[in-house]
Design a protein around this nucleic acid. Sequence first.
DNA 1: TAAATATATTCCTATATTGGAATATGTCAA
DNA 2: TTGACATATTCCAATATAGGAATATATTTA
Lengths: 116, 116
Amino acid sequence: MARKRTTYDPFNAIAEPNRRALLEALAGNSLTVSALALALGWNQPKVSKHLQVLKEVDLVVERKEGRFRVYRVNAQAMKPVQEWVTQFQAFWAPRLDALGDYLNEVQTGEQTDDEP
Amino acid sequence: MARKRTTYDPFNAIAEPNRRALLEALAGNSLTVSALALALGWNQPKVSKHLQVLKEVDLVVERKEGRFRVYRVNAQAMKPVQEWVTQFQAFWAPRLDALGDYLNEVQTGEQTDDEP
DNA sequence: TAAATATATTCCTATATTGGAATATGTCAA
DNA sequence: TTGACATATTCCAATATAGGAATATATTTA
């Protein structure tokens, strides 16, 4: 059939490079749409649209201030991603890595230069 | 214009729920395509196709074993995601959160019931 | 009230995928 | 060699976006 909706969880929200840029720009700061547009060199609708997606998954929070909208990051919403990813951390501990890399090389047949 | 290619970095690879399921199934294990298909209740092409995407971003590693292909997770490739997400961890520390939530409520004008 | 400013939304187009079915490829076993 | 099995790939249809342009919706200020 077809693609499913992909945007409406934090995993998908941060999959878009522009949205990551937006979140990086907002890390620690609270910024208006136009400030973001200026900082990133995008047009305003582009900023607004990506912000809406981030807002839908709660990665950003909006506050009205006169005719401005001030956005800030809500890092809490990143937690599910962090937790999911961290599950795998057990498998990348330095020592295991070194061993794993070695085994992988051997298995993959990445022969060292001792072949004429 | 149009959408960019979205699949070829770990962020996008794990944005797809099916691919996360695949990685979860492979966490700690090494499994063949058919074993995965059985475990997840998918048809074989579906498994293979998602595995290819994961392989392209190096999230899984494949090993040939007779006519089987054994896949395993390469957690190293998850590191960029983990690091990127962790940037934001500073903003979700419990105390700050509690304060932030409170301020947010106040700012948003979430008035308590003291209004008739 | 009208003009200006800030932001959101709608419309439209181009393209990226996902998924299933069918098929190709590779490998083992008789 | 032939058949069976495991997996990858191709083909196709349905749909989800991203992006730009134009427009709508506040809200402030003159």
